[in-house]
Amino acid sequence: MERTARGDEGAFRLLVERWERPVFGFLERMLSSREEAQDMSQETFLRVFAEAGRYRPDGRFRSWLFRIAGNLARSRLRRDRVVRWIRLEPLLHDPPDPGARADDLLERDEKRRAVRTALARLPDRQRQAVVLQRYQGLSYREVAAAMDTTVPAVESLLQRAMALLKKELAGERKEQ
């Protein structure tokens, strides 16, 4: 089947539309900012396009994609740290669930905020490993590929991250 240039553009558009939510979700948790996550999502796909010619099909697209997004996120975080420009945006974006009672909503939102704060306090690489593994569903192997490291190193990052999260979220645990 011969693809035309217009067909290839359509293909890339489908790819962007297929992956924009996971990429945005990853970046938003990494950067604690939806606007920055939106900007960096665009950068990620521009870089995907730019590097498409170097991609070798090996079934690891997801790791490759998140490596690009992760490098951009960490470079952005380094910059932000330099200018002491760390923001934690309130989670106002989810439409309220009409079936839920107000105090349920409040409790849920507080829990979510506590999780966000705890994640934001993790060292970047630990947060990256947790977000990729827990929220994006990557296997340890895929996380290792996305972070240019080994599976034992990923296990160690997750181990340390979970210990910190457990400590940070101790109050939430008691309320379970």
């Binding site: 558009r13 924009e20 990429v23 938003e28 796909f45 989670l91 979510r112 999780v115 929220y135 999260l165």
Partner: peptide, 22 residues
């Protein structure tokens, strides 16, 4: 239990479609 708490963060949707800017 820790995993259950982490799951309460359901994530956010993109603010707008990414494709037009790309």
């Amino acid at each position: 239990n820790l995993y259950r708490i982490l799951e309460s963060d359901t994530g956010a949707e993109p603010l707008r479609p990414v494709w037009p800017g790309v």
